[in-house]
Design a protein around this nucleic acid. Structure first.
Lengths: 198, 198
DNA sequence: GCTGGCTGACCGACTGTTCGGTTAAGAATG
DNA sequence: CATTCTTAACCGAACAGTCGGTCAGCCAGC
């Protein structure tokens, strides 16, 4: 596991460590609300030094969102190559999505808040829509199988379902006492069985 | 119901009509991502004309968020003065919250996206937290009554529940074929009974 | 003629970005 | 060992453009 290659050159930030701090700040203040000046202060280096690692502010955003999108797309690839009932595959997608959300929390957070102001943002939104489509298809299939209630429109169901999942970024912090598995269990229980005692 | 007082002076925008367009643009581009110049272009008047109606950009934000918060707080006041089992009062809060979300969609949307960069934003976040607390208390009470499942932490439950509700702002548009009541039904069914067929 | 809405020119501060030069480390050379 | 080379990160000053906001005065309708 020791991928500890010796760092050459002057010590300091590399792209990864810089990106981590940048994304954290973007999530605190919002992407548009964060200036490069402010970021440089947080990093403890000058504004111009940032441009040694990255060609523009927007590239920071792109890099971050790609990390989130790559994780989510790995889930869809998994789901597509899977067998079994749609409802079971749906539950698997939900569990894996929660995992990606938790493991790449800052990146996904940034992704979910993008408004589509620039080309980069619109491209990210387009990839997100692809993901949503897969989930909606699964919900439709499971409803057709008779495993999911058919009294609610599948697209409404999938939107509310992923609304619940995505809301995790607003409050979940890995440091806390809730493990990733416990969170996934809570989400699945609530989503599939509801919160009322029957 | 005719509150149609006669408009005097030169015809044009008043505060309300200006605010409506401003909030719409803020939601499209994000508050920080929208410049007063851009807003003036959308309004069809000059930048300085905006300052005839409002003292600052932030006041637009404050006015909008207050409209959302006032609606949500009316729900909590209702809930506090209500009798009956906690689970029934919780369902009522959920239904009324969906109603407020739909009726004041643009204002609530703006509220839910604020990051806390300024005093105005932090004050709004504080009021939001008060609202969340009421819901969490209701969930706790309902769990203590034995009406709600006790295998999930009440604060997690309430967060996921309102994550689902709040996600409505991301996709629901009143123009569509889903009525407000149908939406509230879908939310309550999904939240309380889950999406699996039993 | 008063009220309410608007214009156009302007300000200082801040924006993201560029550029030429510098500094600190490991690696190669003698 | 000391020297030079290479790599990688950084600084300071400046750029053109945009930001939110101001002010004195103009204009349309009851």
């Amino acid at each position: 596991m020791a991928e500890q290659s010796v760092r050459r050159g002057r010590p300091g930030y590399d792209l990864e460590s810089l990106l981590a701090i940048a994304v954290k700040l973007f999530n605190e203040r919002g992407y548009d609300g964060t200036s490069m000046e402010e970021l440089s202060r947080r990093l403890g280096i000058t504004k111009s030094a940032i441009y040694h690692h990255v060609t523009s502010k927007e590239e920071l955003l792109r890099l971050a969102m790609d990390r989130a999108l790559d994780g989510l797309f790995a889930v869809t690839l998994e789901a597509r190559s899977q067998e079994g009932r749609a409802i079971d595959r749906l539950e698997h997608v939900v569990r894996r999505s929660v995992a990606v959300l938790v493991e790449r929390l800052p990146f996904v957070t940034l992704l979910l808040r993008v408004r589509g102001n620039t080309k980069v943002e619109r491209a990210a939104l387009a990839r997100r829509r692809e993901f949503d489509q897969l989930v909606t298809d699964l919900v439709k299939q499971a409803a057709a199988d008779g495993d999911l209630r058919s009294d609610i429109d599948p697209s409404v169901t999938s939107r509310l379902l992923f609304g619940m999942i995505n809301s995790v970024i607003e409050w979940y912090r890995p440091r806390g006492d809730i493990t990733q598995d416990a969170l996934a269990d809570a989400v699945c229980t609530l989503a599939f069985s509801g919160l009322r005692v029957h």
